[in-house]
Design a binder for these strands. Structure first.
Lengths: 191, 191
DNA sequence: TTGGCATGAGACAAATATGTCTCATTTGAG
DNA sequence: CTCAAATGAGACATATTTGTCTCATGCCAA
């Protein structure tokens, strides 16, 4: 009887694919199989086509981001707290998931739906944070989302380039985001 | 006698390559040739290999960014003014040059040197702006550069997504950058 | 007109990636 | 131990891309 809790081969392939494709998005599946320590035929037994493998990677990435976001929000005392925690936990995922943004995964309706759902959740958080006074209500929510995403990316790249530690980059991105989009007095020192 | 002022075929190929490859970085050269309205053989007469074409695109992009930056700085009255103008003129180049960041052009020493030179120029501008009081001297110059680059990218994407006009996106990116990295009181309203 | 030159069209070989298939071996449950 | 499922190795066909080559055509200048 096949053990449903032992898909180790499949997991190894997914892991190897993240590893290899994040370094070279056009790498051949043979490299992925080699990195996973399995034969190329076995890879195709688990993922019929390259497209199917990429789709599995995208779904895995979404799961991982959900898990990270949920963990960050779990014991957050406010939207501000939640955003600050999310920034920290999402930075390390850049290496792993970054290359997927250059893959045409939006064609798949399931992936597109999940993306939309995450976008909506982020928008809700931004609006909650606006109500809290963290962000200026006059700034479009769409821009706050863009700025969050790209400053997150900047932080990841800063760490990757050795310009800052994980904690330093998170602090800098946070400062840039909040002081830039704040209501204008929240961060002022009390005299 | 060959007219040195009429490399129209070569220009058409470069233009088509920007057009096609920015939409699909893995597009075949046949698509580039077709878009340029030339035969595939002619493309190879001008650019022996795909790599040579990409290199030409990178050099063209660097030239265009230099020209845009120079125009922005030409009649700038301060570093702050120069940064604000550069933000505006560089946003439209995102569509055209963005895909090059995912090409392994750094292998070419000439390209790498040009990149380094542009980085150095940006760093000098950041330090000048720090001395002017635009940026907090306590914030690492490397982070200011990263934030500028990525907020520029965010602005471009915002325009592309139809979330904002060119001018609106530039304003939002500028606000995010300066109020976030400012000395802390420059933008405060005088009572 | 004539001659050189760039081009277009297409054939061609080589390299690479993909997906399928077969067969021998291993592994784990019964 | 025995058997079925999973796997590894490798052959195989196919498709795609790349780069080269040839030949006929159009164009511009002398």
């Amino acid at each position: 009887m096949p053990n449903p809790l032992r898909p180790s081969t499949r997991d190894a392939i997914v892991e190897a694919a993240f590893d290899v494709l994040s370094r070279d998005p056009s790498a051949a599946l043979a490299q992925v199989a080699e990195r996973a320590g399995v034969g190329r035929a076995t890879l195709h037994r688990h993922f019929a086509t390259r497209e199917a493998l990429i789709r599995a990677l995208a779904l895995t990435a979404i799961e991982e981001m959900d898990a990270a976001a949920e963990a960050a929000c779990a014991d957050a005392r406010s939207y501000e707290d939640a955003f600050r925690r999310m920034l920290t936990v999402l930075i390390p995922l850049g290496d792993r998931h970054g290359f997927l943004s250059r893959e045409p995964v939006d064609d798949d309706p399931e992936i597109a739906a999940e993306f939309q759902r995450q976008m909506d959740e982020t928008r809700e958080m931004v609006e909650g944070a606006k109500a809290e006074g963290l962000f200026d209500p006059a700034v479009p929510t769409a821009w706050i989302t863009q700025a969050f995403d790209h400053l997150l990316y900047a932080a990841w790249e800063s760490v990757r380039a050795g310009e800052a530690t994980h904690a330093q980059a998170a602090d800098l991105a946070w400062r840039t985001l909040t002081h830039g989009l704040g209501t204008g007095g929240a961060e002022r020192k009390r005299p």
